[in-house]
Computed example of a mutant assay.
Amino acid sequence: MDKKLTKSPFSVAMGAAFMMAMAAVGPGFLTQTATFTGQLGADFGFAILICILVDIVVQLNIWRIIIVSGKRAQVLANEIVPGLGYLLTVLIVVGGFFFNIGNVGGAGLGLNVLFGISPENGAVIAAVVAIIIFIVKNALTVVDRTVQLLAVVKVAVLIYIIAVTTVPYQSAIVHTFAPSKIDFYSIVTIVGGTVGGYISFSGGHRLLEGGVRGKENIKYVNEGALTGIGVASVIRVMLFLAGLAVVLAGNKLDPSNPAASIFKIAAGQFGYKFFGILLLAAGMTSTIGSSFTSISFLDYSEKAKGDSSIAKWRSIAVVLFIVASTAVFYVVGSPAKVLVVVGAINGLILPIALAILLLASTRSKIMGRGYKHPKWLLVTGWLVVLFMAYAGIRTILLLV
């Protein structure tokens, strides 16, 4: 991978933005959004609104703290409490691995819908393509271009589906701001699937990999984080509106594949093929994002990227990560329910990870002399920690 900053900070920030957004918009994202739209109807709009607000606070905090300190999240955690970084690594990598099983499986299912290939063989093909993307020369540039192209594909597919459905905009708006029911499980799950677990750090770690660090680059942190949140949120809202149109028309979504139901009911077999394209794109982008970010948590070096002791082994580690998750999918099959549950688990990890970085932001020894973390980010950050911890506890009580 690239060993020094060969592109402008803005270009790297946009790469990080799409890395984060497309890591979030995976098969789990599609499954969760469709599942809760089917269960909650227009009230799910409130959960999406809370998710977007939480996303903004989480990403602006985490990206800024990582870039100003110039250190990866696990290194920061170790500086707060020795050994804490290793615990964080375990939580992130294990969560990322389970999500990646669903990611490669989703890409395989996409190929199954499009070409009739078995999901297992489709997953192998998708995994091989992802591996090639990672091992080619200038891999980070190829990764950036790939996720940006696939983002355009996702948005184009959803624009088509919304165009052929009658979207109940008034109901969606009313219930988004005045829900008749608040479901904490849905909030924890979609927040976890958007900025929980490894996804929280995908953008910040991508910026470090691109050589962007230091408080002089805060401008690019803000631009990248807000762009990434915007892209992921637009896709979430579009899928919600398409699903709501189908549900309020009196249709029932297939619980085994609720996202596919939306497209098939809305546009027949043609729509189902479009879903295949969306699922393939979602699986590929999330496989890339999950693998890149999870493996970045194995690097505890505080040196410049080019001198990192793990740099020469990273490509091998990424390949092994993708191969292992593909092998599990091949043996076990599609973990549709696991995608929702892992989203909830990532939502539970979020308050722990965010609290660690907020503590780091107040240490001048870590952040550097002369830096003061914005008070509004600190306050809202701790409010998110408390809210997600509370919502997480409510969710655990419901599940048990």
Rank of each mutant, 00 (worst) to 15 (best):
residue 42 A to E: 07
residue 341 V to R: 12
residue 211 G to Y: 11
residue 94 V to I: 14
residue 347 G to T: 03
residue 391 A to I: 04
residue 242 A to W: 14
residue 236 R to S: 11
residue 332 V to K: 14
residue 255 P to Y: 15
residue 225 A to K: 05
residue 265 I to Y: 00
residue 6 T to E: 14
residue 23 A to I: 01
residue 94 V to G: 01
residue 107 A to H: 07
residue 70 G to M: 00
residue 188 V to Y: 11
residue 180 S to Y: 03
residue 248 L to C: 13
residue 388 M to Q: 04
residue 326 T to S: 12
residue 69 S to C: 05
residue 156 A to V: 15
residue 377 L to F: 04
residue 117 I to L: 07
residue 103 N to E: 12
residue 306 G to M: 08
residue 26 G to K: 00
residue 302 E to W: 03
residue 6 T to M: 03
residue 270 F to H: 04
residue 174 V to G: 00
residue 115 F to I: 10
residue 48 I to V: 14
residue 375 K to R: 10
residue 337 K to F: 13
residue 83 G to A: 08
residue 47 A to P: 03
residue 369 R to C: 02
residue 101 I to Q: 12
residue 360 A to C: 02
residue 248 L to T: 15
residue 341 V to M: 08
residue 392 G to D: 13
residue 76 L to Y: 06
residue 81 V to Q: 04
residue 311 A to V: 09
residue 254 D to V: 14
residue 42 A to L: 11
residue 65 I to Y: 01
residue 87 L to N: 00
residue 164 V to W: 09
residue 8 S to V: 08
residue 42 A to D: 08
residue 270 F to C: 05
residue 29 F to C: 00
residue 356 I to N: 06
residue 150 L to V: 01
residue 273 K to A: 13
residue 62 I to H: 03
residue 198 Y to Q: 03
residue 17 A to M: 00
residue 293 T to S: 12
residue 61 N to K: 04
residue 96 G to S: 12
residue 229 I to C: 02
residue 206 R to H: 05
residue 317 A to L: 14
residue 107 A to V: 08
residue 144 D to A: 14
residue 177 F to S: 02
residue 190 I to G: 09
residue 296 S to M: 11
residue 74 Q to E: 10
residue 179 P to E: 03
residue 317 A to S: 09
residue 211 G to N: 09
residue 322 I to N: 07
residue 104 V to L: 02
residue 338 V to G: 02
residue 315 S to W: 03
residue 246 V to M: 07
residue 81 V to C: 03
residue 356 I to K: 05
residue 189 T to Y: 02
residue 172 A to S: 01
